[in-house]
Amino acid sequence: MSEIWIYVENHFNRVDPSSLQLITKAKEIANGRQVTAVILEDHDQDFENTVKQYGPNQILLVKNDNLKNASDETITNVLVDLAQEQKPDTILFGATVTGRSLAPRIQGRLKTGLTADCLDLRFDDDLLVATKPSYGDNIMCEITCPKNKPQMATVRPNTFEAVVDGSSEPKINEVEVTVDVDPRVTVSDEQGSVSNTRSIGTAKRIIALGRGAQSESIIKKANELAGKIGAIVAVSRPLTDLPEFSHEQQIGQSGNTVAPDLIINLGISGAVQYVVGIQNAKTVVSVNTDPKAPIFDVSQYKYVGDAEAFLDGLIENV
């Protein structure tokens, strides 16, 4: 039976949410294909326990202590061996830094096509049709790989929702393989950033600050409000220059994609590179002194006026 493989990525001993989102999406479009989650882990790890809750048909499991802190090169060796032996029809990765690094390496060795950073996937008969944004999300294209197998894609995190599915118990297929460790590269332990970006990517509520809301007192108040409503403070790119913030909190094309239930944009103009990062937000509120600010075009609620005064109003009344 033809199979869709999902590479299960992990960081800090947790399964990356993008992998779980892909399992749900793959099941939705599978149409008779088998959805297989591929897990590479060491003997202290048990990612299969998390993954099975999301109901893939099968888990292909490799447990080997050489997989601790494995390099891209080592993971490629293992995945390529497995793929050459089992011949999946399709392989999907989250379009994370890790997925975007591994997938092309594997693509190169399997001599096939790879579509990047997809926003949608479907099958037309046997062909995987992947929707890929480009030109800063101004243009969409559909891309297929008709002559080569496997068909491969990386998919933008937080585009689909991961849904727990206990309707059937996945089969766990543990395989013994030799793990060819690439001796040229040493990977150290991952270091988490102070505020985990994962929490930005998966946060339900976000207060976003831009160049019109960057004073120390606003940052302090934004953090205060965030504490009160269980939100996280994020920023547009210019504010990553401030000592309080880094790339980890940046929303946008060259930062993070977010998908909160609520985002409050304070002093953000709404450049396309910013807006692409919030297009999956459910409710967008924006405050800006400029009545013509483009951010208002993508907002459900707008207030034309001073960001700090509005922030004061929120803190007082929440």
């Binding site: 999300d137 101004n138 969409m140 993508v298 459900q300 609620y301 707008k302």
Partner: peptide
């Protein structure tokens, strides 16, 4: 191996904006 089969401009569903 890859072929671009379709290129289009995304139709943003216009959000109704309510002024506070």
């Amino acid at each position: 191996p890859t072929i671009v089969t379709k290129v289009y401009t995304p139709t943003a569903t216009p959000k109704v904006t309510e002024t506070l």
